[in-house]
Write a protein that binds this DNA or RNA. Structure first.
Lengths: 249, 249
DNA sequence: CGCGAGATTGAAAGCATTCAAACTTTGTGG
DNA sequence: CCACAAAGTTTGAATGCTTTCAATCTCGCG
């Protein structure tokens, strides 16, 4: 289905979830200079301290962003799915404040930052779409602060799973029959601010309660409603509904 | 000193920390339609679920953003100081995903969102400055995820204090002799994801170790270096250095 | 078949929370 | 200007969620 699309097509699809673009803008997005590469799992796309020159767009596969404390403890601060722009924050900031790394093998299109800047300068609707997606990402960060700061382990994990499922579905990457979470329990632990051991126990507990079914890295929610409740999940912060009024001001 | 400035002047000062603006752009920022109000402590500027029509800019006083879990537990996700724009995320998102509330009494300029949109559409340099400040805010959120997710109580609190002090200083609101943190310990707890009781104990411990001096809500760091170390604080994520290369692409 | 990464489990320890109560400061009205 | 109420701070003791440490198990792969 979607896997035949190029990264730029995936990006375009994402932008059009936000704003309807006229044909001319669509073409301009697809015409962005770029080179596409297949990168292996755990490849670094950006390292903290780098001076960014390109913005990556994920066509297939998964990636994450991470930060480290001074003594090397890791916190994953974002998970990325196909269609996500990986470096919008580097559009106008001159030093990477965190690292971006591939979770799985995948295809990434690298767009020179200058070309992306020019595109959003030249095309107001594309700009609005890109800006909106940056703002949505900010909203997701805020929810993560809440998740990590104020929810217990079970709720926290369930919330992360709900968010992942919702985003996959919104991007058309889920058949509604569950999804694959291609992540180790250790990485999952780093994403929710827990230890791998406790993530393991919590996952088993969710499974024992019939809230999730696991098969390898594949997760199924027998009842989305129950998961939503257990995970205290309200998708509002994902802003998945179209931003209609924004288009008229 | 700075307290004679209007909110728009404070905003302009902030933007010019990021990008040098030509006189024309400066005038355009100052000419933004707005109304300025003095609002009392704990006044809501935005409530989660609101449809935003204005963007607030803090001229004096302090504010914060908060989210609630389903059972009403609060997490403060951002602290705002004079000069901060409070609602940039509402520029293109049509429903508030969190609340914004005054921490102290203060002056706020409310700018119709439409006028702000027009300004950034019309003026590339202002746009770059606003966009950069949005991206910096995103960077701060990531650091908060790390802070709340991976640092113990003492480090976490010290980190928050360091961040606050740094931002105040960058905006020219600190004399280098310490600063006022006009926040209750309960609010502080909600900002770092701890309980008020534990915040109290941790603060006392920092004080006992000579890392901070407290007098009412006034905080002094006897040694900035020691605080920086204890708080695992590296200001890189604040992107306080000028974004020079961004200006040339 | 054996290695190695990742998952799982058990037991002990610890950091932070919870519950309660006392104390201090601030603001207000008499 | 003092008294009182309300808000905020401080302290103690018990509890508990999560971590830590260690060991075992499982599965994909060379």
């Amino acid at each position: 289905m979607t896997f035949a699309d190029t990264p730029l097509q995936m990006l375009l699809r994402r932008l059009e979830l936000i704003v309807d673009l006229p044909e001319e803008d669509r073409q301009a997005v697809l015409a962005l200079p770029h080179r596409t590469r297949t990168v292996e799992a755990s490849t670094y796309l950006t390292r903290e301290g780098d001076v960014p020159t390109v913005c990556g767009v994920l066509g297939t596969g998964f990636a994450y962003r991470q930060k480290l404390t001074g003594d090397g403890v890791r916190q994953i601060v974002a998970l990325h799915i196909p269609g996500d722009a990986l470096d919008m924050q580097h559009l106008f900031l001159d030093m990477a404040d965190h690292s971006v790394q591939m979770l799985t093998r995948g295809e990434v299109a690298f767009i020179p930052r200058k070309d992306l800047q020019e595109l959003i300068n030249a095309r107001p609707l594309v700009r609005q779409a890109v800006l909106s997606s940056i703002l949505v990402e900010g909203s997701i960060f805020r929810e993560w602060v809440l998740n990590v700061g104020r929810r217990d382990a079970r709720t926290r994990l369930a919330h992360l799973l709900c968010e992942f499922a919702s985003r996959m579905e919104a991007q058309g990457l889920s058949d509604g029959e569950g999804f694959e979470l291609p992540i180790t329990q250790e990485q999952l632990a780093d994403a929710v601010g827990l230890t791998p051991v406790h993530v393991n126990r919590t996952l088993k507990s969710l499974e024992a309660d019939g809230l999730i079914t696991r098969n390898k890295r594949n997760i199924v929610f027998p009842s989305w409603e129950r998961m939503r409740d257990v995970g205290d999940f309200n998708p509002r912060y994902l802003h998945l509904d179209r931003q209609l009024s924004a288009q008229v001001g």
